[in-house]
């Protein structure tokens, strides 16, 4: 129980800023980012590694922050949704594509989706629609039916985002 749980000081760089805080050994990275460091943009939605909402980049790799302990990220560079846009506020191409293509509704799963697509396109600037859809298959979105996310993926891959509706009688 909690009185026997060991605590550690965890230091990490989040979105280019250095942080250090105490954490229980059992504290997940997502909880640490939210509760200790105040990066509430990372959302915990299933806490068992299926839905992908809590995805952050750890040393450039997309990770489910609910499945990783804070202490495991000690000394790492972490990128959360708050750090995706440029410092001047210009949206990351992934954010811009999701914005233009109605790729989000309630926005709860969106941070993880955006981080995953940012990680895929960063690792492989020539990532195809198939590459990105495969990565996206590890995310659950309950609102959009994935239509806008798929169009955003096509936009990122340099394809025509459609099909749209738009045949108005």
């Amino acid at each position: 129980m909690s009185e026997t749980i060991s605590r550690a000081t965890v230091a990490m760089t989040v979105n280019g800023r250095r942080h250090s805080a105490e954490a229980d050994a059992r504290t997940g990275l997502g909880e640490f980012l939210r509760e200790a460091l105040g990066y509430t943009g990372t959302h915990l939605a299933c806490e068992h590694g299926v839905c992908g909402a809590c995805t952050v980049m750890v040393d450039g790799v997309a990770m489910r922050s609910c499945l990783m302990l804070a202490v495991q990220a000690d000394g790492c560079e972490v990128t959360t949704i708050e750090g995706l846009a440029a410092p001047d506020g210009t949206l990351h191409p992934v954010q811009q594509a999701l914005h233009e293509q109605f790729g989000l509704q309630c926005g709860f799963c969106t941070p993880g989706v955006a981080i995953t697509l940012a990680a895929v396109t960063r690792d492989n600037p020539a990532a195809t629609v198939e590459d990105m859809e495969k990565a996206m298959s590890g995310h659950i979105c309950r609102c959009t039916g994935y239509q806008g996310i798929r169009r955003a993926i096509r936009q990122l891959a340099g394809e025509v985002p459609g099909p749209h509706g738009g045949e108005h009688a």
Partner: peptide
């Protein structure tokens, strides 16, 4: 979208 895409919801 402005807040939801940037983690500021």
């Amino acid at each position: 979208n402005a807040r939801l895409l940037t983690g500021r919801g």
